[in-house]
Design a binder for these strands. Structure first.
Lengths: 219, 219
DNA sequence: GATAGTAGGTAGTGCCACTATCCATAATGC
DNA sequence: GCATTATGGATAGTGGCACTACCTACTATC
Protein backbone atom coordinates (compact mmCIF):
# COMPACT_ATOMS: atom_id res chain seq x y z
CA UNK A 1 0.00 0.00 0.00
CA UNK A 2 1.03 3.63 -0.28
CA UNK A 3 1.21 6.23 2.42
CA UNK A 4 -2.36 7.49 1.97
CA UNK A 5 -3.80 4.05 2.66
CA UNK A 6 -1.49 3.58 5.64
CA UNK A 7 -2.86 6.86 6.94
CA UNK A 8 -6.46 5.91 6.24
CA UNK A 9 -6.20 2.53 7.93
CA UNK A 10 -4.54 3.81 11.09
CA UNK A 11 -6.11 7.24 11.40
CA UNK A 12 -2.68 8.82 11.59
CA UNK A 13 -2.29 11.91 9.32
CA UNK A 14 0.16 11.59 6.42
CA UNK A 15 2.47 14.39 7.66
CA UNK A 16 2.69 12.64 11.01
CA UNK A 17 3.66 9.37 9.33
CA UNK A 18 6.38 11.22 7.44
CA UNK A 19 7.52 12.71 10.71
CA UNK A 20 7.68 9.26 12.30
CA UNK A 21 9.72 8.00 9.34
CA UNK A 22 12.15 10.87 9.80
CA UNK A 23 12.37 10.23 13.52
CA UNK A 24 13.09 6.57 12.93
CA UNK A 25 10.20 5.11 14.94
CA UNK A 26 8.70 3.72 11.73
CA UNK A 27 10.95 1.81 9.31
CA UNK A 28 11.03 3.11 5.71
CA UNK A 29 8.83 1.41 3.13
CA UNK A 30 10.15 -0.76 0.34
CA UNK A 31 11.48 1.42 -2.48
CA UNK A 32 9.77 0.94 -5.85
CA UNK A 33 11.34 3.98 -7.52
CA UNK A 34 13.48 6.95 -6.42
CA UNK A 35 10.55 8.70 -4.89
CA UNK A 36 8.01 6.00 -4.26
CA UNK A 37 7.76 3.41 -1.51
CA UNK A 38 5.42 0.61 -0.57
CA UNK A 39 4.21 -0.15 2.95
CA UNK A 40 2.67 -3.33 4.34
CA UNK A 41 0.86 -4.71 7.37
CA UNK A 42 3.98 -4.58 9.53
CA UNK A 43 3.91 -0.79 9.09
CA UNK A 44 0.29 -0.65 10.21
CA UNK A 45 1.16 -2.69 13.25
CA UNK A 46 4.22 -0.64 14.11
CA UNK A 47 2.30 2.59 13.68
CA UNK A 48 -0.37 1.40 16.11
CA UNK A 49 2.32 0.35 18.55
CA UNK A 50 3.98 3.76 18.37
CA UNK A 51 0.69 5.55 18.92
CA UNK A 52 -0.12 3.31 21.87
CA UNK A 53 3.24 4.06 23.47
CA UNK A 54 2.86 7.79 22.88
CA UNK A 55 -0.84 8.28 23.60
CA UNK A 56 -1.54 5.64 26.22
CA UNK A 57 1.92 5.27 27.69
CA UNK A 58 2.63 9.00 27.47
CA UNK A 59 6.18 8.34 26.28
CA UNK A 60 8.34 10.88 24.46
CA UNK A 61 9.13 9.83 20.90
CA UNK A 62 12.84 9.58 21.68
CA UNK A 63 12.08 6.92 24.29
CA UNK A 64 9.85 5.06 21.86
CA UNK A 65 12.67 4.98 19.34
CA UNK A 66 15.15 3.77 21.93
CA UNK A 67 12.92 0.87 22.91
CA UNK A 68 11.95 -0.08 19.37
CA UNK A 69 15.60 -0.02 18.32
CA UNK A 70 16.21 -2.70 20.92
CA UNK A 71 13.21 -4.72 19.75
CA UNK A 72 14.49 -4.56 16.18
CA UNK A 73 18.13 -5.28 16.98
CA UNK A 74 19.10 -8.84 16.12
CA UNK A 75 21.21 -9.34 19.20
CA UNK A 76 18.27 -8.82 21.49
CA UNK A 77 16.41 -11.77 20.06
CA UNK A 78 16.28 -14.36 22.82
CA UNK A 79 17.46 -11.75 25.29
CA UNK A 80 14.30 -10.63 27.00
CA UNK A 81 16.34 -9.61 29.97
CA UNK A 82 18.21 -6.97 28.01
CA UNK A 83 14.98 -5.60 26.59
CA UNK A 84 13.48 -5.40 30.07
CA UNK A 85 16.52 -3.43 31.13
CA UNK A 86 16.19 -1.04 28.21
CA UNK A 87 12.52 -0.46 28.89
CA UNK A 88 13.28 0.17 32.56
CA UNK A 89 16.02 2.66 31.87
CA UNK A 90 13.93 4.39 29.22
CA UNK A 91 10.93 4.76 31.50
CA UNK A 92 12.83 6.03 34.53
CA UNK A 93 15.19 8.34 32.67
CA UNK A 94 12.85 11.20 33.62
CA UNK A 95 13.06 10.66 37.37
CA UNK A 96 16.18 12.49 38.50
CA UNK A 97 17.80 11.53 41.79
CA UNK A 98 17.32 13.68 44.86
CA UNK A 99 19.56 16.72 45.30
CA UNK A 100 20.97 15.26 48.53
CA UNK A 101 23.00 12.45 46.98
CA UNK A 102 24.03 11.02 50.32
CA UNK A 103 20.48 10.60 51.61
CA UNK A 104 19.50 9.22 48.21
CA UNK A 105 22.20 6.55 48.33
CA UNK A 106 21.45 5.65 51.94
CA UNK A 107 17.77 5.26 51.14
CA UNK A 108 18.57 3.05 48.16
CA UNK A 109 20.61 0.77 50.39
CA UNK A 110 17.85 0.67 53.00
CA UNK A 111 15.21 -0.25 50.44
CA UNK A 112 17.30 -2.92 48.74
CA UNK A 113 18.12 -4.34 52.13
CA UNK A 114 14.48 -4.75 52.96
CA UNK A 115 13.51 -6.24 49.62
CA UNK A 116 16.36 -8.71 49.71
CA UNK A 117 16.31 -9.77 53.33
CA UNK A 118 12.64 -9.54 54.20
CA UNK A 119 11.11 -10.55 50.88
CA UNK A 120 13.98 -12.56 49.43
CA UNK A 121 13.99 -10.65 46.19
CA UNK A 122 16.84 -10.98 43.73
CA UNK A 123 17.84 -7.47 42.76
CA UNK A 124 21.00 -6.01 41.25
CA UNK A 125 21.92 -2.77 43.03
CA UNK A 126 22.08 -0.79 39.81
CA UNK A 127 18.49 -1.43 38.78
CA UNK A 128 17.28 2.06 37.76
CA UNK A 129 13.95 1.54 39.52
CA UNK A 130 15.76 1.48 42.87
CA UNK A 131 17.05 5.03 42.39
CA UNK A 132 13.61 6.15 41.26
CA UNK A 133 11.93 4.64 44.31
CA UNK A 134 14.52 6.04 46.73
CA UNK A 135 14.07 9.46 45.17
CA UNK A 136 10.31 9.25 45.71
CA UNK A 137 10.72 8.19 49.33
CA UNK A 138 13.20 10.98 50.12
CA UNK A 139 10.90 13.50 48.45
CA UNK A 140 8.03 12.24 50.61
CA UNK A 141 10.19 12.66 53.71
CA UNK A 142 10.91 16.26 52.71
CA UNK A 143 7.17 16.80 52.67
CA UNK A 144 6.86 15.48 56.19
CA UNK A 145 5.61 12.08 55.07
CA UNK A 146 8.19 9.99 56.86
CA UNK A 147 5.70 7.14 57.26
CA UNK A 148 5.45 6.85 53.47
CA UNK A 149 8.28 4.32 53.34
CA UNK A 150 6.41 1.99 55.69
CA UNK A 151 3.62 1.83 53.19
CA UNK A 152 6.11 1.14 50.43
CA UNK A 153 7.08 -1.92 52.43
CA UNK A 154 3.44 -2.93 52.56
CA UNK A 155 3.08 -2.40 48.82
CA UNK A 156 6.14 -4.47 47.96
CA UNK A 157 4.88 -8.02 48.58
CA UNK A 158 1.62 -7.15 46.83
CA UNK A 159 3.42 -5.79 43.78
CA UNK A 160 5.57 -8.91 43.90
CA UNK A 161 2.51 -10.83 42.74
CA UNK A 162 2.11 -8.39 39.88
CA UNK A 163 5.60 -9.36 38.75
CA UNK A 164 4.53 -12.99 38.60
CA UNK A 165 1.58 -12.13 36.37
CA UNK A 166 3.82 -9.95 34.22
CA UNK A 167 6.28 -12.75 33.56
CA UNK A 168 3.37 -15.08 32.81
CA UNK A 169 2.18 -12.62 30.22
CA UNK A 170 5.52 -12.64 28.46
CA UNK A 171 6.01 -16.37 28.86
CA UNK A 172 2.69 -17.28 27.24
CA UNK A 173 3.49 -15.45 23.99
CA UNK A 174 3.41 -17.78 20.98
CA UNK A 175 6.69 -16.79 19.36
CA UNK A 176 9.78 -14.72 19.97
CA UNK A 177 8.66 -11.58 18.14
CA UNK A 178 5.40 -11.58 19.99
CA UNK A 179 7.25 -12.19 23.23
CA UNK A 180 9.41 -9.12 22.69
CA UNK A 181 6.33 -7.08 21.91
CA UNK A 182 4.62 -8.47 24.98
CA UNK A 183 7.38 -6.99 27.10
CA UNK A 184 6.76 -3.58 25.56
CA UNK A 185 2.96 -3.77 25.56
CA UNK A 186 2.79 -5.39 28.98
CA UNK A 187 4.97 -2.70 30.43
CA UNK A 188 3.67 0.45 28.73
CA UNK A 189 -0.03 -0.36 28.51
CA UNK A 190 0.26 -2.38 31.70
CA UNK A 191 1.45 0.66 33.65
CA UNK A 192 -1.60 2.68 32.66
CA UNK A 193 -3.88 -0.27 33.34
CA UNK A 194 -2.42 -0.80 36.80
CA UNK A 195 -2.81 2.84 37.76
CA UNK A 196 -6.42 2.80 36.54
CA UNK A 197 -7.11 -0.33 38.58
CA UNK A 198 -5.54 1.35 41.59
CA UNK A 199 -8.01 4.23 41.30
CA UNK A 200 -10.91 1.80 41.15
CA UNK A 201 -9.55 -0.16 44.08
CA UNK A 202 -9.38 3.08 46.09
CA UNK A 203 -12.95 3.94 45.17
CA UNK A 204 -14.08 0.46 46.12
CA UNK A 205 -12.23 0.40 49.41
CA UNK A 206 -13.55 3.84 50.25
CA UNK A 207 -17.11 2.68 49.59
CA UNK A 208 -16.51 -0.46 51.65
CA UNK A 209 -15.24 1.48 54.66
CA UNK A 210 -17.82 4.25 54.58
CA UNK A 211 -20.98 2.58 53.31
CA UNK A 212 -23.23 5.30 54.70
CA UNK A 213 -21.75 8.12 52.72
CA UNK A 214 -23.45 8.85 49.47
CA UNK A 215 -20.54 8.57 47.11
CA UNK A 216 -19.62 10.96 44.37
CA UNK A 217 -20.76 10.21 40.90
CA UNK A 218 -17.96 12.17 39.24
CA UNK A 219 -20.43 14.23 37.29
CA UNK B 1 10.85 35.55 54.93
CA UNK B 2 11.20 37.20 51.55
CA UNK B 3 11.30 35.57 48.15
CA UNK B 4 15.08 35.13 48.04
CA UNK B 5 15.07 33.05 51.20
CA UNK B 6 12.12 31.01 49.96
CA UNK B 7 14.17 30.33 46.85
CA UNK B 8 17.31 29.48 48.81
CA UNK B 9 15.54 27.08 51.16
CA UNK B 10 13.73 25.17 48.44
CA UNK B 11 16.23 25.32 45.61
CA UNK B 12 13.59 26.76 43.30
CA UNK B 13 14.80 29.81 41.29
CA UNK B 14 13.15 33.13 42.09
CA UNK B 15 11.68 33.61 38.57
CA UNK B 16 10.11 30.17 38.84
CA UNK B 17 8.52 31.09 42.16
CA UNK B 18 7.12 34.24 40.58
CA UNK B 19 5.79 32.11 37.76
CA UNK B 20 4.11 29.75 40.22
CA UNK B 21 2.52 32.73 41.99
CA UNK B 22 1.17 33.96 38.66
CA UNK B 23 -0.14 30.50 37.80
CA UNK B 24 -1.88 30.23 41.16
CA UNK B 25 -0.21 27.05 42.37
CA UNK B 26 1.45 29.02 45.16
CA UNK B 27 -0.67 31.42 47.26
CA UNK B 28 0.54 35.04 47.43
CA UNK B 29 2.55 36.13 50.46
CA UNK B 30 1.25 38.44 53.15
CA UNK B 31 1.41 42.04 51.96
CA UNK B 32 3.59 44.36 54.06
CA UNK B 33 3.54 47.27 51.60
CA UNK B 34 2.29 47.87 48.04
CA UNK B 35 5.19 46.02 46.53
CA UNK B 36 6.46 43.83 49.31
CA UNK B 37 5.22 40.53 50.66
CA UNK B 38 6.23 38.09 53.36
CA UNK B 39 6.28 34.30 52.99
CA UNK B 40 6.32 31.62 55.68
CA UNK B 41 6.80 27.89 56.20
CA UNK B 42 3.52 27.04 54.54
CA UNK B 43 4.93 28.48 51.33
CA UNK B 44 8.02 26.33 51.62
CA UNK B 45 5.84 23.29 52.12
CA UNK B 46 3.52 24.14 49.25
CA UNK B 47 6.46 24.81 46.96
CA UNK B 48 7.93 21.39 47.73
CA UNK B 49 4.55 19.79 47.13
CA UNK B 50 4.22 21.47 43.75
CA UNK B 51 7.71 20.40 42.72
CA UNK B 52 7.00 16.83 43.82
CA UNK B 53 3.81 16.73 41.78
CA UNK B 54 5.54 18.19 38.73
CA UNK B 55 8.90 16.44 38.89
CA UNK B 56 8.06 13.11 40.45
CA UNK B 57 4.43 12.84 39.43
CA UNK B 58 5.07 14.32 35.99
CA UNK B 59 1.90 16.40 36.20
CA UNK B 60 1.19 19.47 34.09
CA UNK B 61 0.95 22.64 36.15
CA UNK B 62 -2.70 23.11 35.21
CA UNK B 63 -3.50 19.76 36.83
CA UNK B 64 -1.52 20.69 39.92
CA UNK B 65 -3.53 23.87 40.26
CA UNK B 66 -6.80 22.02 39.81
CA UNK B 67 -5.96 19.58 42.58
CA UNK B 68 -4.56 22.18 44.97
CA UNK B 69 -7.63 24.36 44.45
CA UNK B 70 -9.69 21.46 45.76
CA UNK B 71 -7.36 20.95 48.72
CA UNK B 72 -7.63 24.64 49.58
CA UNK B 73 -11.37 24.93 49.09
CA UNK B 74 -13.25 25.04 52.38
CA UNK B 75 -16.06 22.84 51.18
CA UNK B 76 -13.71 19.96 50.57
CA UNK B 77 -12.70 19.76 54.19
CA UNK B 78 -14.06 16.50 55.50
CA UNK B 79 -14.88 15.43 51.96
CA UNK B 80 -12.02 13.12 51.05
CA UNK B 81 -14.25 11.44 48.55
CA UNK B 82 -14.58 14.58 46.46
CA UNK B 83 -10.84 15.14 46.51
CA UNK B 84 -10.25 11.56 45.41
CA UNK B 85 -12.61 12.20 42.52
CA UNK B 86 -10.80 15.39 41.53
CA UNK B 87 -7.43 13.69 41.63
CA UNK B 88 -8.78 10.84 39.52
CA UNK B 89 -10.28 13.10 36.88
CA UNK B 90 -7.16 15.24 36.80
CA UNK B 91 -4.85 12.28 36.34
CA UNK B 92 -6.85 10.57 33.63
CA UNK B 93 -7.79 13.67 31.68
CA UNK B 94 -4.93 12.83 29.31
CA UNK B 95 -6.19 9.38 28.36
CA UNK B 96 -8.69 9.93 25.59
CA UNK B 97 -11.27 7.23 24.84
CA UNK B 98 -10.83 4.91 21.89
CA UNK B 99 -11.97 6.12 18.46
CA UNK B 100 -14.51 3.30 18.26
CA UNK B 101 -16.93 4.59 20.88
CA UNK B 102 -19.13 1.51 20.69
CA UNK B 103 -16.34 -0.94 21.43
CA UNK B 104 -15.11 1.38 24.17
CA UNK B 105 -18.50 1.44 25.88
CA UNK B 106 -18.96 -2.31 25.53
CA UNK B 107 -15.55 -2.94 27.06
CA UNK B 108 -16.30 -0.60 29.94
CA UNK B 109 -19.44 -2.56 30.70
CA UNK B 110 -17.58 -5.86 30.47
CA UNK B 111 -14.87 -4.71 32.85
CA UNK B 112 -17.28 -3.23 35.40
CA UNK B 113 -19.30 -6.42 35.22
CA UNK B 114 -16.30 -8.49 36.15
CA UNK B 115 -15.14 -6.23 38.96
CA UNK B 116 -18.60 -6.05 40.48
CA UNK B 117 -19.76 -9.62 40.09
CA UNK B 118 -16.52 -11.58 40.44
CA UNK B 119 -14.70 -9.38 42.92
CA UNK B 120 -17.65 -7.68 44.58
CA UNK B 121 -16.25 -4.22 44.05
CA UNK B 122 -18.38 -1.15 44.60
CA UNK B 123 -17.88 1.04 41.57
CA UNK B 124 -19.91 3.86 40.05
CA UNK B 125 -20.10 3.48 36.27
CA UNK B 126 -18.81 6.98 35.64
CA UNK B 127 -15.52 6.54 37.45
CA UNK B 128 -13.00 8.02 34.96
CA UNK B 129 -10.55 5.18 35.57
CA UNK B 130 -13.01 2.77 33.95
CA UNK B 131 -12.88 4.63 30.65
CA UNK B 132 -9.10 4.79 30.86
CA UNK B 133 -8.80 1.06 31.49
CA UNK B 134 -11.27 0.15 28.73
CA UNK B 135 -9.34 2.37 26.34
CA UNK B 136 -6.11 0.57 27.21
CA UNK B 137 -7.70 -2.85 26.73
CA UNK B 138 -9.20 -1.95 23.35
CA UNK B 139 -5.88 -0.50 22.24
CA UNK B 140 -4.19 -3.76 23.24
CA UNK B 141 -6.74 -5.70 21.21
CA UNK B 142 -5.96 -3.55 18.19
CA UNK B 143 -2.35 -4.60 18.59
CA UNK B 144 -3.33 -8.26 18.55
CA UNK B 145 -3.07 -8.61 22.30
CA UNK B 146 -6.56 -9.95 22.92
CA UNK B 147 -5.34 -11.95 25.91
CA UNK B 148 -4.31 -8.70 27.64
CA UNK B 149 -7.71 -8.36 29.29
CA UNK B 150 -7.33 -11.76 30.96
CA UNK B 151 -4.25 -10.49 32.70
CA UNK B 152 -6.11 -7.37 33.75
CA UNK B 153 -8.49 -9.70 35.53
CA UNK B 154 -5.53 -11.32 37.25
CA UNK B 155 -4.15 -7.93 38.24
CA UNK B 156 -7.43 -6.72 39.70
CA UNK B 157 -7.62 -8.69 42.96
CA UNK B 158 -3.94 -7.96 43.59
CA UNK B 159 -4.40 -4.23 43.07
CA UNK B 160 -7.44 -4.51 45.31
CA UNK B 161 -5.03 -5.03 48.20
CA UNK B 162 -3.17 -1.89 47.15
CA UNK B 163 -6.42 0.00 47.60
CA UNK B 164 -6.62 -1.25 51.18
CA UNK B 165 -3.12 0.01 51.94
CA UNK B 166 -3.92 3.33 50.23
CA UNK B 167 -6.95 3.95 52.43
CA UNK B 168 -4.90 2.98 55.49
CA UNK B 169 -2.39 5.61 54.51
CA UNK B 170 -5.04 8.30 54.39
CA UNK B 171 -6.83 7.05 57.49
CA UNK B 172 -3.73 7.15 59.69
CA UNK B 173 -3.08 10.85 59.06
CA UNK B 174 -3.09 12.87 62.27
CA UNK B 175 -5.38 15.70 61.21
CA UNK B 176 -7.63 16.77 58.39
CA UNK B 177 -5.12 18.93 56.53
CA UNK B 178 -2.58 16.17 56.61
CA UNK B 179 -5.24 13.71 55.52
CA UNK B 180 -6.05 15.78 52.46
CA UNK B 181 -2.38 16.05 51.63
CA UNK B 182 -1.99 12.32 52.15
CA UNK B 183 -4.51 11.74 49.39
CA UNK B 184 -2.43 13.88 47.04
CA UNK B 185 0.97 12.55 48.09
CA UNK B 186 -0.21 8.96 48.32
CA UNK B 187 -1.65 9.15 44.84
CA UNK B 188 0.99 11.12 42.96
CA UNK B 189 4.15 9.85 44.64
CA UNK B 190 2.47 6.50 45.19
CA UNK B 191 1.94 6.02 41.46
CA UNK B 192 5.62 6.45 40.73
CA UNK B 193 6.57 4.24 43.67
CA UNK B 194 4.25 1.47 42.52
CA UNK B 195 5.59 1.50 38.98
CA UNK B 196 9.15 1.39 40.32
CA UNK B 197 8.26 -1.56 42.55
CA UNK B 198 6.68 -3.27 39.56
CA UNK B 199 9.96 -3.03 37.66
CA UNK B 200 11.83 -4.55 40.58
CA UNK B 201 9.24 -7.28 40.94
CA UNK B 202 9.69 -8.12 37.26
CA UNK B 203 13.45 -8.25 37.65
CA UNK B 204 13.11 -10.45 40.71
CA UNK B 205 10.62 -12.81 39.10
CA UNK B 206 12.78 -13.04 36.00
CA UNK B 207 15.78 -13.96 38.15
CA UNK B 208 13.70 -16.50 40.05
CA UNK B 209 12.49 -18.23 36.90
CA UNK B 210 15.79 -18.25 35.06
CA UNK B 211 18.41 -18.61 37.78
CA UNK B 212 21.06 -19.86 35.37
CA UNK B 213 21.11 -16.80 33.19
CA UNK B 214 23.69 -14.24 34.11
CA UNK B 215 21.47 -11.22 34.57
CA UNK B 216 22.09 -7.78 33.22
CA UNK B 217 23.65 -5.25 35.43
CA UNK B 218 22.18 -2.27 33.57
CA UNK B 219 25.62 -0.77 33.13
C1' DG C 1 -1.68 14.97 -20.99
C1' DA C 2 -4.25 16.81 -17.07
C1' DT C 3 -4.87 15.64 -12.27
C1' DA C 4 -3.76 13.64 -8.09
C1' DG C 5 -0.43 11.48 -5.16
C1' DT C 6 4.40 10.84 -3.33
C1' DA C 7 9.20 11.33 -1.05
C1' DG C 8 11.86 14.46 0.97
C1' DG C 9 13.10 18.76 2.78
C1' DT C 10 12.57 23.17 5.34
C1' DA C 11 9.99 26.15 8.00
C1' DG C 12 6.27 27.22 11.01
C1' DT C 13 2.81 26.28 14.93
C1' DG C 14 1.00 25.60 19.49
C1' DC C 15 1.72 24.26 23.90
C1' DC C 16 4.28 24.24 28.04
C1' DA C 17 7.46 25.30 31.74
C1' DC C 18 10.21 28.11 32.57
C1' DT C 19 13.81 32.29 32.10
C1' DA C 20 15.31 37.10 31.14
C1' DT C 21 14.68 41.80 31.31
C1' DC C 22 12.67 46.01 32.79
C1' DC C 23 10.64 49.30 35.97
C1' DA C 24 9.15 51.68 40.01
C1' DT C 25 9.49 51.06 44.62
C1' DA C 26 11.30 49.28 49.13
C1' DA C 27 14.75 47.41 52.27
C1' DT C 28 19.48 47.37 53.81
C1' DG C 29 24.33 48.75 54.86
C1' DC C 30 27.28 52.25 56.04
C1' DG D 1 21.10 60.37 53.84
C1' DC D 2 22.36 57.80 50.14
C1' DA D 3 24.23 54.15 47.30
C1' DT D 4 23.38 49.32 46.71
C1' DT D 5 20.59 45.47 46.56
C1' DA D 6 16.12 43.20 46.57
C1' DT D 7 11.21 43.04 45.48
C1' DG D 8 6.59 42.68 43.06
C1' DG D 9 4.66 42.95 38.80
C1' DA D 10 4.56 42.96 33.94
C1' DT D 11 6.02 41.65 29.31
C1' DA D 12 8.76 39.21 26.22
C1' DG D 13 11.80 35.53 25.01
C1' DT D 14 13.64 30.53 25.16
C1' DG D 15 13.97 25.64 24.38
C1' DG D 16 11.89 21.34 23.88
C1' DC D 17 8.48 18.65 21.75
C1' DA D 18 5.07 16.77 18.59
C1' DC D 19 3.37 17.76 15.13
C1' DT D 20 1.63 20.56 10.67
C1' DA D 21 2.10 23.35 6.38
C1' DC D 22 4.21 24.18 2.41
C1' DC D 23 7.27 23.44 -1.43
C1' DT D 24 9.65 20.95 -5.11
C1' DA D 25 10.67 17.47 -8.20
C1' DC D 26 9.01 13.50 -9.62
C1' DT D 27 5.46 9.39 -10.36
C1' DA D 28 1.01 7.11 -10.92
C1' DT D 29 -3.48 7.12 -12.77
C1' DC D 30 -7.38 8.18 -15.47
Amino acid sequence: MRIAELSRRTGVPVPTIKYYLREGVLPPGERTSPNQARYDDTHIHRLRLVRAMVEVGGMPLATVREILDQVDADDVQSDIDKLLGTVQRAVFSTVQPHADAERQTAKEAEIVDYLRNELGWHLPLNNPAIAALASVVVTAEDLGHARFVEFIYRYAPIIGEIGVVDLDYVATAQDLDFMLESVVVGTTLGDTAILALRRMAQTNESARRFPNIRHRTFD
